[in-house]
Amino acid sequence: MVKSPEKVEDDHAREAGKVLASRQRAERRASFEFRALSTLPAALFVVILIVLLVRAWPILQQKSLVGLLLGDVWRPSEGQFGFLPFIAGSLWVTVLAMIFAAPVSILCAIFLSEYARPTTKALIKPLIDILAAIPSVVYGLWGVLVIVPWVQQSVGPALGRWFPFLPLFNSSNPTGYSILSGALVLAVMVVPFIIAISYEVMRTVPRGYHEASLAVGATRWQTVRYVVFPRVAGGLIAGVVLGTSRAFGETMAVLMVVGNNPIIPHSIFDAAYPLTALIANNYGEMMSIPLYDSALLASALLLMLIVLLFNVFAALALRRATAREQA
């Protein structure tokens, strides 16, 4: 039997009314669950912080913070835990890597967002994605096979010959496993990261500003320099800071090429021992030495706090940039 249209409409209204209650129940439950789950990142962050703090507590209680951070002797078996060589190692490698990576990345980002045609862009962007996808041990292996011998055989001797008066280029380490090797590998690793952020930032500048500048006869570069840069400077700084943070935390690739010698380096050809390598090389073993484990987790805590600091700084740089934008 065929129902009349009126009957169908009545039925639909009644059915909708009946299921309404259960739909509302589902909605309330989902609302609660989704909101509850959104606390998870916060919870994870707090838990990691607390766990690291608790485990680092024994050494923080027994040694002075200044002694730990500025001590330059690392002899766990004798109870001497000076982090300075590791902090210095991380800083040297990171800063040098950023000196290589930052200008190159920003220039590439400018090219991609301001100069490249769509077809060129479609060609280059996958390359950068691939560079970002390569695992860090592969970078490390490349470093061992290519960069380390290159630094050892060519770069080291050449710079030593040309600038014998510069202590920065002095070489007392003939192996090639050095800060320079670590920094070169690290630079290639963070380039795609900084390009991605800088490119995203630069794309937010409306075309109208470019046209306003080009319309009075500015060249492209003048437009980038006087119109685009002032608007994106904060974002570019944020990108570089986040890249620095990335470089600071990179472990395997650096560990494989940097030499891992706990001394305070004085030249880019010295070996260094970054914080991340300290944890990777020693954690999980040597549990019998008192405070060793606590010292390593203290260095993990230090790494985390440094990353936090970098993030806050980047967020501030971005916020200042966007605040100026809105003014």
Partner: peptide, 30 residues
């Protein structure tokens, strides 16, 4: 040079990210 000789007044005004003074001086400077 062509664009110096031919000015453009666009549909929407895009003032450049600088002071009022520098906006007018922009073309002269570049």
């Amino acid at each position: 040079e062509i664009r110096r000789r031919i000015g453009l007044l666009a549909q929407r005004p895009y003032s450049l990210p600088m002071s009022i003074y520098e906006n007018v001086a922009y073309g002269l400077r570049i």
